[in-house]
Amino acid sequence: MPALARHSGGGVIFFTLIVAFVLTVIPMPEWLAYARPEWVALCLMYWCIALPQRVGVGTAWISGLFLDVLRGALLGQHALALAIVAYLALLLHQRIRVNPVWQQSLSVLVLVTIYQIFVLWVNGIIGKPSANWTSWLPSLSSMLMWPLVFVTLRSLRRGFGVT
């Protein structure tokens, strides 16, 4: 591969992130909305694990900033949480990568829970506590969605030759 074309397919990564943003705010029935997976976190985690040299803490932080605006949250709230998750995913990518998909889901559960701890922690600090157990449902649904996300993004990555 020529040196200039070392990075290719940035558009694919961008496109998957846009789709994740759309899925984050697309209207859903109320009972399902409580269990909406954290699509942006899932998408970023995949790219961090698959292409740690391309996608990292910076991308995650910028996406988080957009997520804050999209969700009407405090600016920097999701940015911080996503940056931390991306950092952990980069740190652990070699260990997570070798596992089969269902074992990866468990790592994803831990990472998304950490993500949610930060988001809900900030919510608590600014006076919007959610003492309800349903606030933790996205972690579980994200875990269940991981195989789907993984397979879809992997086929996209291979199909378009994203490196």
């Binding site: 803490v57 405090l74 600016l75 920097g76 709230q77 940015a79 911080l80 940056a83 931390i84 900030v122």
Partner: peptide
């Protein structure tokens, strides 16, 4: 990482206050 965390915390505080 530390840099991003610090920037996040600063803008969260500014945005809140």
């Amino acid at each position: 990482m530390t840099f991003f965390a610090l920037v996040s915390i600063v803008i969260m505080v500014v945005d809140h206050r």
